[in-house]
Design a protein around this nucleic acid. Structure first.
Lengths: 184, 184
DNA sequence: TGGACGAAGGTGATGCGTCAACTAGCCGGG
DNA sequence: CCCGGCTAGTTGACGCATCACCTTCGTCCA
């Protein structure tokens, strides 16, 4: 490994800024949601996906792709949500292996109640702090990084790393803020 | 609560981009570190702080402020790291309540071994993807959000939220990439 | 002197996230 | 028909993060 290139001050500043952003932001959103609606941001993400789907239900596989989790995480999480009656599981008639995850009335009520406060928090701690130009700039940057992340399993970043594989990846959209009830 | 303002497409895009950034980025960095050095990013953050400190040690309080964790999280984490001989605890002679966290030789070796690969990963998945202008822009944005986050405990984001308290907060710097051995 | 208060730190319980391994069902070739 | 390999989903173990609570100690003021 040839002499590593440490970060220069500008790079370091950006990197530190990202560190300082992530953890506390998700923490504060989690607390808001927990306090006001007894939901976690993970719960919220699941409920949004379901509320946006036809029939208020989704195959586990689709959910996994939509919110970018590992399937085992989803499975564990759905089990916990099921025990709180927010969702239920159903068998899939056309694929014996498959499972549908379905939004219950309780779940729908929960997200409809939670959404306004959550959107307000997202605005208050993120969106409303930025100018339209900053929003656009931010999105561009984050999407570039996101695209790089989705193109892995190839060049694992050891050393200088020519990045071998690149490709068009469709952007999926985990954790929208607004549930399907938006505009009702 | 007056009719919530849902996110418009531009706002939604930026928000989604952030969601898509955070989780996978920290996941990939965690995996790189775990695979190559048997450390977590949390371990790394602790070790960097210690390696940057005079005497290779820090009061728990200082560490908590530096990396922005809750004290109980730090306590649990230090216990686990202690059991792996990466750090050790010492009593503070001048404050009976206090505890020093000290970098052991094992810990120093671990971070010196881990640092090059980690920096390479940070470059490969973040820093090197952005132009200098983007880096600066990103830092500015993230710092604005970070500042907002540090000014809470006051306006809790419910509703329209006039944000009452604002103040100068010094930016602390969790999780630098380079340990103090940089440049050796 | 002593007592209230707050700061430093630790602990136990609990829920979350990841990994590795597993079951069960689909699908294609022989 | 059945066998190998694939995909969908689940499970258990384990480490991590948070919450509420506790102890110990410094500090300030009467």
């Amino acid at each position: 490994m040839t002499d590593p290139r440490w970060l220069n001050p500008d790079e370091s500043r950006a990197w530190r800024a990202l560190q300082n952003l992530n953890m506390p932001l998700s923490a504060v959103l989690n607390r808001q949601l927990a306090r006001d609606s007894n939901l976690s941001t993970a719960d919220y993400a699941v409920l949004v996906q379901l509320s946006e789907s036809a029939d208020q239900r989704l195959r586990a596989r689709e959910m996994v792709q939509a919110i970018g989790w590992e399937k085992s995480r989803l499975s564990h999480h759905i089990r916990r949500m099921e025990s709180r009656h927010l969702v239920s599981r159903e068998e899939c008639p056309t694929d014996g292996r498959g499972a549908f995850i379905t939004l219950t009335p309780t779940g729908r009520a929960a997200i409809e109640q939670a959404a306004p406060g959550h959107v307000a928090a997202v605005r208050s701690y993120f969106v409303d702090l930025l100018t339209p130009a900053q929003l656009a700039s931010f999105a561009e940057i984050a999407e570039a990084v996101g695209a790089r992340l989705r193109s892995d399993g190839c060049g694992e970043a050891d050393g200088a790393t020519g990045d071998p594989c690149q490709g068009e990846v469709e952007t999926d959209c985990p954790d929208q803020v607004a549930p399907a009830c938006a505009g009702e």
